[in-house]
Design a protein around this nucleic acid. Structure first.
Length: 501
RNA sequence: GGUCGGGUGGCCGAGUGGCUAGGCAGAGCUCUGCAAAAGCUCCCACAGCGGUUCGAAUCCGCUCUCGACCUCCA
């Protein structure tokens, strides 16, 4: 059965057919590295990681391109052009690129924590200024952009006139028509450079105080926000590629502008399937800087944000996200995360136990109905993934299987109830779906509550032994733990701490 | 105001015409020295009002309500 994806462009689920199978080109809008990633950012990266993993699993050769926006763009177009990265850098007394480097590292660290596979290519905006300039030149030559005061703007009205005739008006992705926008776009200051307020910047002239600047045919400046994705996608995936992904909030204007730019340059719609994930909300509101409700990933992992009642491991967060389908909003709360934490532990305990078992090649089950049921649940996993990546249903089926595994473990059912062949099949498919497709990593001991509790228990016993001057016991605990890579430290204040080596 | 998407049991969240979603929490039982874990059972909800239909959470209409986007945004 074929994979079906919901295409935002056509507003329906469509069978996924690569342009040039078995090769698949996928572009996903990456982060702006002017700050630390937050929980909201986790969703697209985990969603598209699962899509990437699934495409690889079914045998495609995927080139996954995810950019890093390090050139900075405007706080608000039309205001005095203020570069987000530059202003932040001054505050932190860092060079812009130093700041970019810092947050790029943090971003990569978070991606790794989530067990996201690295993309095939991770291009930076600053590394592709030449490509962006070339693209802008082409758009000007074709008459769809104009210069004003050293800045270049895309002529949206003209584009719309010409491409409406080719059934591709401006706004085709987000369902907006230009007339409405002309009426409703809010008035911004300093609009006089633009012929029309719906026009967007391809290149901005850099004011004297602007640190990030590049030489261009139009003087020193910096690229507009939208052009980088078009330039890098075209460079690495070609004029037309298979999948373009990103958050729903990028649909307009970002992706709309990408479509316009790329179409003028390359004479075709850049991507076939536009895939957008929905937002993570907190108390029903989107998580975002403007709402002051941002929980950074590092805060989530160590529990340091005031809204958090505890820390949540990266796999808990990943699992939380996978328990919903990517196109719906997902509401964050401590309660919901704690539910995911417990559920994940139950799933993984059963899975890890099953993984360690050996089964026979016996084909005949004693309980044919149960045997059949297990096969059905496992076989449905593929169908759920094919249905627009319904990871929620995949997870639900995994939880149908968990009690059967635990029943086997606790000998509530006999191993022979289900055939050895079926057990082997369950083993293999669970490994495939849990670890390969959903990308859930068996968490290291250092992150496990149970292990920490055990160590604390041993520390208590050791304290008691020491109080009774039973140093043999006390030293045995310390030395044995040391051998396991856990170092006990007697602090000066009488407290005991430990570290993993 | 325009465009788009929602409102499902205590919480999170699947589900587009009939068949148990699932998780967490809660209750009972089994197991158990106790506890935990695990298993079994229960908790059978779909914003409201109409309509279509043999039958609707699911289709249609209206109402109420929440949110996203409208040139910073994953």
């Amino acid at each position: 059965m074929p994979l079906k994806l919901y295409n935002s462009l056509t507003r329906q689920k469509e069978v996924f057919e690569p342009i040039n199978a078995p090769y698949v080109g996928m572009y996903v809008c990456g982060p702006t590295v002017s700050g630390e990633s937050h929980l909201g950012h986790a969703r697209p990266f985990i969603t598209f990681d699962v899509l990437y993993r699934y495409l690889l699993h079914v045998g495609y050769k995927v080139r996954y391109v995810r950019n890093i926006t390090d050139a900075g763009h405007f706080e608000e177009e039309g205001k005095l052009a203020e570069d987000k990265i530059t202003s932040k850098a001054i505050l932190e007394k860092l060079e812009p690129m130093e700041l970019v480097q810092k947050y790029t590292h943090l971003y990569h660290w978070a991606m790794d924590q989530f067990n996201n596979l690295p993309p095939s290519i991770e291009p930076t905006a600053t590394g592709h200024i030449i490509e962006q300039i070339e693209m802008i030149k082409k758009i000007i030559a074709d008459g769809f952009a104009y210069e004003a005061n050293g800045s270049i703007y895309f002529d949206v009205i003209k584009y719309n006139e010409v491409y409406s005739k080719k059934n591709q008006p401006y706004g085709i992705l987000s369902g907006r028509n230009l007339e409405d926008q002309l009426d409703t776009t809010r008035e911004l200051d300093n609009q006089d450079e633009k012929k029309n307020k719906v026009d967007f910047a391809l290149w901005k002239k850099a004011p004297v105080e602007h640190i990030m600047r590049w030489q261009s045919p139009w003087g020193e400046g910096f690229p507009g926000w939208h052009i980088e994705c078009s330039a890098m996608a075209t460079k690495y995936l070609g004029k037309k590629f298979d999948i373009h992904g990103g958050g729903m909030d990028l649909q307009f204007p970002h992706h709309e502008c990408e479509i316009a730019q790329s179409t003028v340059c390359n004479h075709e719609m850049p991507a076939r399937y536009w895939v957008h994930n929905n937002m993570i909300t907190i108390n029903g509101r989107k998580m975002g800087k403007s709402y002051n409700n941002v929980v950074k990933l590092s805060e989530l992992f160590d529990g340091s944000h005031p809204i958090l009642t505890q820390a949540y491991s990266p796999m808990t967060v990943r699992f939380f996200i996978l328990q919903s389908q990517y196109r719906g909003t997902l509401d964050f709360s401590n309660e919901a995360l704690q539910a995911s934490e417990k559920a994940l532990r139950r799933l993984m305990d059963a899975y890890e136990w099953l993984k360690a078992q050996t089964f026979t090649n016996e084909k005949k089950p004693k309980d044919a109905a149960l045997d059949q049921q297990l096969n059905t649940w496992v076989n449905e996993l593929a169908a759920f993934m094919e249905d627009d990546l319904n990871t929620a249903k995949v997870v639900a089926n995994l939880f149908e299987i968990v009690p059967v595994i635990n029943s086997l473990k606790d000998k509530h059912i006999a191993a022979e109830a289900v055939s050895g062949v079926t057990w082997q099949f369950v083993q293999a498919q669970l490994a495939l779906y849990i670890e390969q497709v959903l990308g859930i990593r068996v968490e290291s001991g250092a992150n496990r509550k149970q292990l920490n509790s055990v160590i604390h228990l041993l520390i208590e016993i050791r304290k008691e032994a020491k109080a009774k001057k039973d140093f043999a016991t006390s030293d045995k605990i310390r030395n044995q733990l040391m051998e396991m890579g856990i170092q006990i430290k007697d602090d000066k204040d009488g407290e005991v701490s430990f570290t993993f080596s």
